[in-house]
Amino acid sequence: MGSTLPPTRPELVCPAGTPAALKSAVDAGADCVYVGFRDETNARNFPGLNFNRKELGEGIAYAHDKGAKVLVAINTFPRAGTPELWHQAVADAARLKADAVILADIGLIEHAARVHPELRLHLSVQAAASNPAAIAFYAERFGVKRVVLPRVLTVQEIATINARIAPVETEVFVFGGLCVMAEGRCALSSYVTGQSPNMNGVCSPAGEVRYTETHAGVTSELSGFTINKFAPNEPAGYPTLCKGRFIARDKASYLFEEPTSLNTLNILPDLIKAGVTAFKIEGRQRGRAYVAAVVQAFRAGVDAVMAGRPLPDIDLDRITEGGKQTTGAYEKAWR
């Protein structure tokens, strides 16, 4: 079984929402950078973010020049009747020599495998392939080489999956914003705002967000629904639906999840032992300062583990949501 093999050095897969962030990530030691086009073909279709074709071509040249790879996320679900935008995105990624595309939709994966057989395919976390049978399906049917695992699995479950699916590679999230629902299987955002990650590439979109300052503090709203209220000096979060404060059983609480960031720096050795091929940092929307800080921290962390040195003690508190951190679903007690 694969689990008995000595661990290989995992790739660090880093986010870039803009060309400047791509350079920051590469310069900070990213092995791979993942990006998206400036439209609804990717799950970070945020205002003012992402790459046009020219920027992607230049970004890929910059990364390749420094020995880094570029992965293009085309991970929303094409609209019925109009798949052209998504097909064009795959064609352009292939033409611009992207090292792989990250896809979620079965129809689009089938299209890419058929029309661009030379293009390396990764399965997006938005496909939520959470078990060996699902992964085997994508690998055997379409030649998918790597699967980004949904953030619902424990480290033990990840190790089991890796042992069963070799040589298919797995990529797991190691830092950043945390979906508490199985990714790609959540319609909370469209229920409230009309726009969802699957269809529009956005969750809790900024255009639906309002902050109201009063003497009692700040109220954050999403499409008119109050998502949270903060006292005057309490740290305020972005009103992502599943990180809001709600009332259930007559009690107000962070029912789904607190405003918090995933941080696995301290369990990197366990994830490496579990046979994970690539470590992914979330946050294409977070900007250069965030990218540089997090990539440096995880570069140092991975290098330390691989060299048998103790983990570096790096404080990432100031860039985490609400100043809080969690190891999320990787530890079973989270459930």
């Binding site: 740290p235 972005y238 965030y290 100031r318 860039i319």
Partner: peptide
Amino acid sequence: DGDALFFS
């Protein structure tokens, strides 16, 4: 980081 500024 703009998000971090806003969080704080």
